[in-house]
Simulated assay, not measured.
Amino acid sequence: MTHIIRYLESGNEVGARPGIGVACDDGTVRQLPVSSLAELLAGSLEEIRAVLDSATSAAALPESRVRRLAPVDGLTEVWASGVTYRRSRQARIAESGDGDVYARVYDAVRPELFFKSVAWRAVSDGDPIGVRADSAANTPEPELALVFNAAGQIVGVTVCNDVSSRSIEGENPLYLPQAKIYTASCALGPGIRPVWEVADLGDLAISCTISRGDAVVWSASTSTALLHRRFDDLAEHLFRAMDFPHGVILSTGTGIVPELDLSLTAGDIVRIEIEHVGVLTNPVIQVPV
């Protein structure tokens, strides 16, 4: 499985500039001739494919010698979609004192889109994700994330955990930014799978497990085939009256949500797998207030 990755070479982490490369099926990483992912995403789809093709002649570095970073940098933003699956609609209504707003947006022409993270706040595979100390109910939200270039073309896909505070959002929908945007609430990885290597984005299995100690305390699965919104429709609304000169990542919403009596706690391990895209695994910590 090929991934476009940001990485640091082992033994060269302090003060080093991250490399941008292609992680190949043979366990090697080949560096790309760009200074950042943001620079890569400024190009057209054809230009990006040409840059990746050029990696075949680059020197190979064993992946055992690199540490992957979150696949977003520079001025590239992370956005997210809400209430795009029936299960998400049900969960939002159950947790909210004003469930009608979620029922209406599910069927509305305009989707719910919201800002999730700047690049430097996103965490990578293996890094801790956070839950708020002032929230009674915290949940992972396993999602397929689309990676767009500046022209609005889908370049690739990655795995996103849109970690959320259900109790804060449920108290009042206007608290959505506080429920969604805080330290370590956005995890991305393990890299960007080029879109031309994925046969059908509309039929990918997604699974998630929460482990606590030696036990799996929750697991569920879904498929992007159950997504209520089309990817091109989400993209069209995101790019309305908005420019993304360094590309943008759009997480497409979750179709699996734990019941309200299960909340993430410090020490849990969240594992998300998306078919043909990759696995994102993160330990949970509590973010102090």
Rank of each mutant, 00 (worst) to 15 (best):
E9P: 01
E9N: 01
R17P: 00
G19H: 13
T28H: 09
V29Y: 05
R30F: 11
P33E: 13
V34G: 06
V34D: 07
A38P: 01
E39K: 11
L40H: 06
G43V: 04
L45D: 14
L45K: 14
E46G: 08
E46I: 11
E46W: 01
I48M: 07
V51M: 10
S54Y: 06
P62Y: 06
E63D: 02
E63G: 00
R65Q: 14
R67Q: 11
R67V: 14
L69T: 12
V72L: 07
D73M: 10
D73E: 06
W79A: 06
T84H: 03
S88E: 12
I93Y: 03
I93F: 02
E95G: 15
D98R: 15
V101M: 05
R104T: 13
Y106P: 07
D107G: 14
F114V: 02
K116D: 06
V118R: 14
V118W: 07
A122I: 04
P128H: 04
D134M: 02
S135R: 11
N138P: 01
P140R: 10
A145L: 07
A151P: 00
I154P: 04
I154H: 05
V155T: 03
V155A: 09
V163S: 05
S165E: 13
S165A: 15
S167H: 08
S167F: 06
E169V: 09
G170R: 12
N172F: 02
P173V: 14
A179L: 08
K180W: 10
I181R: 13
A184L: 03
A184M: 09
P194A: 13
V198W: 10
G202Q: 11
D203A: 15
A205M: 04
I206Y: 02
C208H: 00
C208V: 15
I210P: 06
I210K: 13
R212P: 03
W218E: 00
A220T: 04
A220V: 06
T222F: 02
S223P: 01
S223W: 01
A225R: 15
F231I: 14
D232N: 14
D233M: 12
L238H: 10
F239V: 08
H246A: 15
L250M: 09
S251A: 15
S251M: 09
T252N: 03
T252Q: 03
G253E: 01
I256G: 00
L260I: 09
D261A: 09
S263G: 08
S263L: 08
T265C: 13
H276A: 14
V277C: 05
N282Y: 00
P283E: 07
